[in-house]
């Protein structure tokens, strides 16, 4: 093998596939040996970098813990909906005093109507016919 490693051979080498032919070439070719060593070092730095990045791995938590607030919130919402369904809001309370007043007024009007001897439209005529203080 006289030429330098091609892309496929280079990848094979880095993946750990090292047939005798490649080993022999890398053993004698300074350029390929340097290229392989540089890339190998770079992958080593990458490994160290990722490992150091995750070295401060957060402490494991109980897996359900993060769902608890959501469950509580969901439960509260469900309870609220159930309460609204079972106990719908009452209509506004009626003002009793006003009703009582209006009833009194109505009774007085009815009493006044009943107390008349003749319909209202005939009252002037009745006054002419029947002197004051006399009944029919």
């Amino acid at each position: 093998m006289s030429e330098h490693l091609n892309d496929r051979q280079f990848s094979e080498w880095m993946a750990g596939e090292r047939p005798e032919e490649l080993v022999a070439h890398v053993g004698v070719c300074v350029a390929c040996r340097g290229e392989v060593a540089r890339f190998d070092a770079l992958l080593g730095s990458f490994r160290e970098g990722v490992r150091s990045m995750s070295a401060e791995a957060p402490v494991i938590r109980v897996p359900t813990a993060r769902w608890v607030p959501r469950l509580v919130l969901a439960g509260a919402l469900a309870a609220l909906l159930a309460a609204i369904t079972l106990y719908p809001p009452r209509p506004a309370p009626v003002v009793v005093a006003a009703v009582e007043v209006s009833d009194l007024v109505l009774f007085e009007q009815v009493n006044a109507q009943l107390a008349r001897r003749v319909p209202g439209a005939m009252e002037p005529l009745a006054a002419l016919t029947w002197p004051e203080g006399k009944s029919e």
Binding site: V50, R51, S54, A57, P58, R66
Partner: peptide, 23 residues
């Protein structure tokens, strides 16, 4: 735990997602 977290972090690039996935 650290190994799974590291692999998840390398794959997802998201610390929160990696933590959750390791759990």
């Amino acid at each position: 735990w650290p190994r799974i977290y590291r692999f998840a972090l390398g794959s997802l690039r998201d610390k929160g997602a990696a933590e959750s996935l390791a759990q």
